[in-house]
Design a protein around this nucleic acid. Structure first.
Lengths: 206, 206
DNA sequence: GTTTGTGAAACGATTCACAGCT
DNA sequence: AGCTGTGAATCGTTTCACAAAC
């Protein structure tokens, strides 16, 4: 089962979203082509994606909606909740703390850190902004599963090293830098300016 | 030159970032391997990426830093500024308006729309939040180049259709839905919950 | 001697197409 | 008859390796 492409994992997340919708509508089974047309892909792709993890469907019938949803939640590691620390109490950070999608999907922001004395001690969505100096102490006491990094680029690698020192194995990085981490740590970088540039490229090259 | 992979375009953006850094340090030339190590890729990849657009380097020497940066800005369509409308004055929207990275890279948010009467009329970073009802009137008067969509999922497709009706050809979509658009419109969807799920998948499957 | 530019080879992901189950 | 599961074929991207330029 090892070595599934990231693109496959992303599609599984989408399928799960659609399955939950279908579940709400009381649908009992769904075919790969129904799932595909909802998700902008092909039925063969859907079947191939699922086949990496087993065979969940019935030939002639399709896939049982609730069972497949449950199986996908399990595969995606969504059968539990995750404790998430937010590092950086700036604009994007503030949007993320309040963003419903995270909590809905099982990701709870349980700590917020910043280095700005003007922010430390403030209440944010029921949480006190902590001094990033106290990162080790706090995480030592209340370990977390993931970190969301929203610091300026200059600070990102140093904070990352400290997070890794505290055993953090997954980082969602919004700082516009490429973090270097050991093999057993997974980083997903989201670079908003870069997304816009793929759009400007497309506009300029038509 | 047509048909360059999106992954290539994304790397070009990164190279540009590094080149501007090198430029600031007064470096005159840079080798593909220097660029590669800075960007987490290989020198062959760098050379291949650049070769889609011409040959900019000198064998035995490397690439001239300012010229290559300039050429990349041109390729990526960054020699001009873009007028961007923000649709949705919620949490993420508010973070984006204030986000420096956009303006720095040539993307100016020039209009903000929302449908919530509580938000319409408010001042946001020097801009008045406009009623999304007036989208056509406003964009007819002051056309835009791109839209950033930060509406709830349910509203996203309808707004998209109206944007396209006003000639918008590029959309950065933060709504957690898959938008359907004509071929000549380019959409980039950023789904934050989905990014977290690729992390939980990685944590669950080790 | 160094480093580019690029065909050719290797690798990886998607699509095809069909046998096999319900 | 309908739809899955999956090898085989196709397509696209990355890596290799080396001749050509400096």
């Amino acid at each position: 089962m090892r070595k599934v492409a990231e693109s496959t994992v992303r599609r599984l997340s989408l399928y799960l979203r659609f399955l939950e919708e279908f579940e709400g509508q009381g649908m009992g089974t769904v075919s790969s082509s129904a799932l595909a047309s909802r998700g902008g892909t092909t039925s063969a792709q859907v079947r191939k994606d699922l086949s990496f993890f087993g065979s969940f469907g019935k030939r002639g019938l399709g896939y049982p909606v609730p069972e497949l949803a449950e199986r996908l939640r399990q595969i995606l590691g969504l059968k539990r909740r995750y404790q998430v620390a937010l590092i950086g109490a700036g604009k994007i950070g503030s949007a993320l703390v309040q963003y419903r999608g995270f909590r809905q999907r099982g990701f709870d922001i349980v700590a917020i850190f910043d280095s700005d004395p003007g922010k430390i001690g403030r209440q944010w969505n029921g949480l006190t902004v902590l001094d990033v100096e106290a990162l080790e102490r706090e995480l030592g006491r209340n370990p977390i599963d993931m970190a969301v990094l929203v610091t300026p680029g200059e600070a990102a690698q140093a904070v990352t090293d400290r997070l890794i020192g505290q055993g953090v194995k997954a980082i969602l990085n919004f700082a516009p830098v490429q973090l270097s981490v050991p093999d057993d740590v997974v980083v997903k970088t989201v670079n908003l300016a870069l997304e816009l540039e793929t759009l400007s490229y497309a506009l300029a090259n038509r």
